[in-house]
Design a protein around this nucleic acid. Structure first.
Length: 289
DNA sequence: CAAGCGTGGCA
DNA sequence: TTGCCAAGCTT
């Protein structure tokens, strides 16, 4: 057993947040919805939308029975509305191809729209207790610091990180792999954070390679940021907000009021139509049916 | 594989 | 204030 496992898991027992998708009563579908919503979105902003979503659609079949536009509308301001579209598509696939039950294996999960390596491993682990290497941004940062002595992991997941994750994951012993996955994520979220790590409260600070090295600043390629103001993303966001709030088709002249640059507006709208996040009728634009 | 994809809070 | 960051996925 890797020496990090016991202290991190024991810390987790006393420090874990009581998140609704971690409760025993939460269904695999509830776990899956949480994972989609948490992709690039903080926990605090997911709590209420998650509750409302599960109340409206308690099973994949409930969601699959409605138009994808309803999923996009219900998604609200969570951001990246294509996640709602893909979650709906995944619900349809689960209903038609998996008997209405969320698949249990990483490979079957990975085949669903919107489910990548991380989300497949996370659902298999948290919903079904399977032993999978769960590599999210938190775990990657914990491993980068504690084992490699780097402040931050590489920009994209590397083969070396996957090997390291597999090496550290417990195979037997007192701490299940799924517990390690949740505990190492929680450590990254609460203690070993990106901006201001609380090493004074960290259960593995005394064996952390980064702390031992004097917490050196990140070297190597700059971490890519995300511009937003003035980008097509911002324009798309404004258009989608308009469509979500309207029960009827929104004419193009009303769409035009949300952005000053007609060229950029047209580019954004065209991309939304291409992505299937909006559709055009004679009366104007609507969410897809 | 680097770039594109929303949104809001916090340092 | 502005930039960074938040349980990533797809092409």
């Amino acid at each position: 057993m890797h020496p990090l496992i016991a202290p991190v898991c024991e810390w987790y027992v006393g420090a874990a947040r009581d998140l609704p998708w971690r409760r025993e009563s939460c269904t695999p579908w509830g776990v899956m919805v949480s994972e989609f919503m948490l992709q690039q979105t903080p926990v605090a902003r997911v709590l209420e939308p998650w509750r409302a979503w599960l109340e409206r659609w308690p099973t994949p079949a409930d969601l699959a029975a409605e138009p994808v536009g309803e999923a996009i509308r219900q998604w609200g301001r969570l951001g990246y509305p294509r996640r709602a579209q893909r979650l709906h598509n995944a619900a349809v696939s689960i209903t038609t191809d998996h008997g209405g039950r969320v698949p249990e294996t990483r490979d079957a999960l990975r085949a669903l729209p919107g489910v990548g390596d991380y989300t497949a491993a996370a659902i298999a682990s948290f919903a079904f207790g399977r032993a999978e290497v769960v590599l999210d941004t938190n775990v990657r940062r914990v491993l980068a610091r504690a084992i490699n002595g780097d402040e931050f992991p590489p920009n994209a997941v590397t083969a070396a990180e996957k090997r390291l994750g597999a090496t550290v994951m417990p195979v037997d012993g007192p701490f299940p792999a799924a517990m390690w996955a949740a505990a190492s994520m929680e450590l990254g979220a609460l203690i070993c954070t990106a901006r201001s790590p609380a090493c004074d409260r960290c259960p593995i600070a005394d064996s952390c390679a980064w702390v031992a090295a004097g917490r050196p600043a990140h070297t190597g390629p700059p971490r890519r940021g995300q511009a937003f103001a003035g980008t097509d993303r911002q324009v798309r966001g404004r258009i989608m907000a308009l469509l979500r709030e309207s029960d009827i088709a929104v004419p193009r002249h009303r769409i035009a009021t949300v952005w000053h640059d007609a060229t950029q507006l047209d580019r954004a709208l065209t991309s939304l139509l291409k992505d299937g996040l909006a559709v055009e009728t004679d009366a104007g634009l609507t969410l897809p049916t």
